[in-house]
Amino acid sequence: MTLSLPIRRLGACGIEVPAVGIGCWGIGGPAENLGLPMGWASGSDESAAQEGLETAFALGARLFDTADVYGLGRSERLLGWLVRQVPRTELVLVSKVGYFVGTASHGYEPGHMRRQLEQTLDNLGTDHLDVYFLHHTDFGAASEWLDGAVEQMRSFRDAGLIRAIGMRGPHRHALERLSTPRHSRADKVEQFRDLFHRVRPDVLAVRDNLLSPVARASGVYGLAAEHGVGVLVNKPLAQGLLTGVYSPSAPRDFPPGDHRRRKRWFTAEALAIIGSGLAEVRALIGNDPDELLRYALWHCLDSYQHAAVLAGFTSPWQVRRNLKALGQCPDREMLDRVRRIMADVQRRLDAGGEVFRDEATGAETT
């Protein structure tokens, strides 16, 4: 059964996609990069990943998002399995470059970018990407790699290897969060706005969800609208935290290679705060777990008409649940009430930042 998902146009680049796309970070499995855990221990089952991808396509998903660093190529290769099963013209494929450095001087060294794109195309079994993202905003000291990276992306687009250039919204490089004290960090919104005008992207990738509404708070949607730029929203379910599947009474012990080991919102203390907020939301909208998903997804989609969300998965049932839960946009007054409840939860989490510290490094992470 194919679902009737709303169609979104990603701004002036003209790419059209169903409103809910499939994030493929999770299926990369556990991995480490830059000395940090950055994968998902729960995504190591290859057959489940393939069934999930197949299920997504059968239900009407056509947008699939991956990156060279997800599982250090494993996610791309798994997605490539689907690409070889279905018509390429029915897919919108997204990948990213920058975090997987290998032996290069920098992730945005132009020669490295060319080699990574070639490998990505081989992994996916295609001759082009629909959107190719600059995966982070660290272009080296004094932005020494920025001009070369932008020129390289434009040459990819001119050659037909990619259809659109993407860049991250307000974002901190993973190592900056560990190495730079909070009070010494640059203003990431100001940095983003400067880079936006230098990169001139076709599509933005932003983190936006009821727990962390970065895009709404920073004016990203308004900037995108002003310049005709599409938006792909990642982490709309806050990596599962908005689904109610995590229990503060039984916090999970994530194994090596799982990025949640270093995320403070997965600690028992933080989960208790999140759980209290979700209980308040359920008292308002009811106990159907799919209603939580519907409100979370529409929080993002209702913010900008040229935005689509990327819902990740590690199992087929998550794909079915995420796609089927979308339904119609909730009453906007109710949606705003839910937003206010969860905004208060975020304030409480931020106020507890000194409590939720990474046990391994002592650095605050989110």
Rank of each mutant, 00 (worst) to 15 (best):
V220I: 00
A296W: 08
P87Y: 11
S179P: 08
A307Q: 07
A308P: 04
N209T: 09
G219Q: 01
H136E: 14
T314N: 10
R168Y: 02
Q346E: 14
L59R: 06
A225C: 08
L223A: 03
P256M: 01
W81K: 06
L211H: 04
G222Y: 00
L271C: 01
A31H: 12
Q116L: 13
E151H: 10
S249C: 00
G73S: 03
G166S: 01
L323E: 06
I15H: 00
Y304P: 02
G257R: 07
V355S: 11
E144H: 13
P37G: 08
A215W: 03
R163F: 07
A41R: 00
G125K: 06
R77M: 10
A186M: 08
Q116I: 15
H197V: 01
L175N: 11
A56F: 12
E269M: 07
V355F: 11
A41I: 03
L121Y: 07
A308S: 11
R8C: 06
D258N: 04
F192Y: 15
G228Q: 06
H306F: 15
E32C: 08
G140P: 05
Q328H: 15
D158M: 13
A31N: 10
Q116E: 15
G222K: 06
W298N: 02
R340D: 14
G362A: 11
L117Q: 06
H136A: 12
G222S: 10
G140D: 05
F192E: 06
E46D: 14
G11H: 06
N33S: 14
M153T: 07
R262I: 12
L5W: 07
D302H: 15
Q50I: 15
R157F: 07
V229A: 02
R282L: 00
N33P: 05
L326E: 00
G23W: 09
V229P: 00
R193G: 04
F57I: 02
H128E: 05
I165K: 03
N287C: 08
V97M: 13
R320Q: 15
H135K: 10
G277V: 02
V309Q: 01
E364P: 11
G257C: 09
I27K: 04
R320C: 07
